[in-house]
Structures are given as C-alpha cells and as structure tokens.
C-alpha cells in the first residue's frame, strides 16, 4: 500500500499519525473543556511549529476550535475539539474497527 493511496472510507484529515495523536488527546478532554497550547504541546511531545501546522489543518476542517484570550495580560491560546470534530473522531474509529472486522461477522448475511 503506497502513501498516496489512502485507506478507503477513512477521513484523510485524521488519518495521519501526528494529527491522529492531536485528535486523541483533545477527545480525551471532557466535552466543553479546553486545553492550553503549551500543555497540549507537552502532552504530545511536539514542537510548537509542528503542532501549529497540524492544528491549522484541523481548524480548516472545523474539527478544532482555537480560542485566543488573555490571562493577567498574558496571551493564552486554548484548543478544543468542536462538536463535528468529536463526531469525526468517533466516525473515524468506527471506520477503523469496521475495516478490521471480517465481513462474515456481519449479521443478516
């Protein structure tokens, strides 16, 4: 299988190692919670530039919401999954499981 040939039915935005790790980390937060950029970077062990790049792609797909705010005059960036991001991640893991399940297991066959 070559890199240019994505697995059928898998969301190409999520199906990339770095972005998948970002999605997993954000999906682990409770609904409504947001995490600061540096804390997320620390959790994922990514460089700031690398994480920004992947977050931008996820934001372009409306999977991630980035909130810039101030705390005691210091700028803070918060990151969270959007509702569609959470759904896309659930769909993605469901699609993975479906790919790994032999078709003979399907009921009504």
């Amino acid at each position: 299988m070559s890199a240019t040939e994505p697995l059928p039915g898998l969301d190409p935005v999520i199906h990339a190692q770095a972005r998948l790790r970002v999605m997993v980390a954000l999906a682990a937060l409770s609904t409504g919670d947001q995490i600061t950029f540096p804390r997320l970077q620390q959790l994922l062990d990514m460089t700031a530039g690398n994480l920004s790049t992947h977050l931008r792609k996820l934001e372009d797909a409306s999977y991630v919401q980035i909130t810039k705010t101030y705390q005691r005059r210091t700028p803070v960036t918060y990151v969270a999954l959007t509702e569609s991001g959470r759904r896309a991640f659930a769909d993605y893991t469901a699609a993975l499981r479906a790919l790994l399940t032999p078709p003979t297991d399907q009921p009504g066959g």
Binding site: A3, A18, T53
Partner: peptide, 17 residues
C-alpha cells in the same frame, strides 16, 4: 508541514487503532 518523515508514513487500520 515540516513534520518528521516518520510522522507522515501511512498507517494501516491496525496500526492506527
């Protein structure tokens, strides 16, 4: 993206899970 090459290598469904 400036990502390290190993981060962009394609994943199989099993590897991904």
């Amino acid at each position: 993206t400036g990502a390290r090459p190993d981060e962009d290598s394609p994943l199989s469904a099993g590897e991904s899970l």
